[in-house]
Amino acid sequence: MSIVTNTKEFLDETGAIAKFTGRFFTTGIMPRYETKELLNQCYIIGYKSLPLIGLTAFIMGLVLTMQLRPSLVDYGVESQLPVMVGLAIVREIGPVISALIFAGKIGSSIGAELGSMKVSEQIDAMEVSGINPYKYLVATRVFAATLMLPILVILGDTISLFGAYIGVNIKSVTSFELFFLQVFKSLSYSDILPAVVKTIFFGFAVGIVGCYKGFNSSKGTQGVGISANSAVVLSSVLIFIIDLLAVQITEVLGLN
């Protein structure tokens, strides 16, 4: 019985999220545009997330390099360390880790903010003023998350490569030029482009899930907490599902 109920709830929720997402394409992208609020959200979602994404990317690049070195030394291919690290960061680790950090920071903040607006009737107040809250609150946040995450990932990858350069130089000496020459020589457009494209979908998923959870928050402070929490959990799971789909698509297109 509980399996049936859970399945029904899961399907109901999936349908509701699909409907909410559909509304973005039918209502959210139509004029009139809330340009000022969009820029404000780009500042909050993008610029204010940069220090956190940058710090985690730097540590990730450094640690990854230090942990890969012993294995490569064993196989006698230590000189390939920049190539290995560069490929791993640009193709997979950079986009996924940055997107997960982004989901934790932005998904929860959107879920909690809209959830608290919902329970304090601020969303209803917009509605009764004849202002479409979906356009003002949802479209702007989803656009900002979709636009900002790819930029953050590109910046995060760059910072991560700097971390990797420092990691390489902890136990050996490699010049800055040689390190980055090796990294960029090993990378092609088919490594960079799919990785950037999938971050657009990661950003969209984080934005839409955060907004959906906040918009459908139940009454009370507990409801707001649940919205924030479930926004992070669901968007993190979606990031992995999108990643899985992306790797299958790139495989079919011969980009791997």
Partner: peptide
């Protein structure tokens, strides 16, 4: 039509 909410619903941001 105007609507005054019991909770005021002032946009707190």
């Amino acid at each position: 039509v105007g609507f005054l909410f019991q909770s005021n619903a002032i946009y707190d941001s």
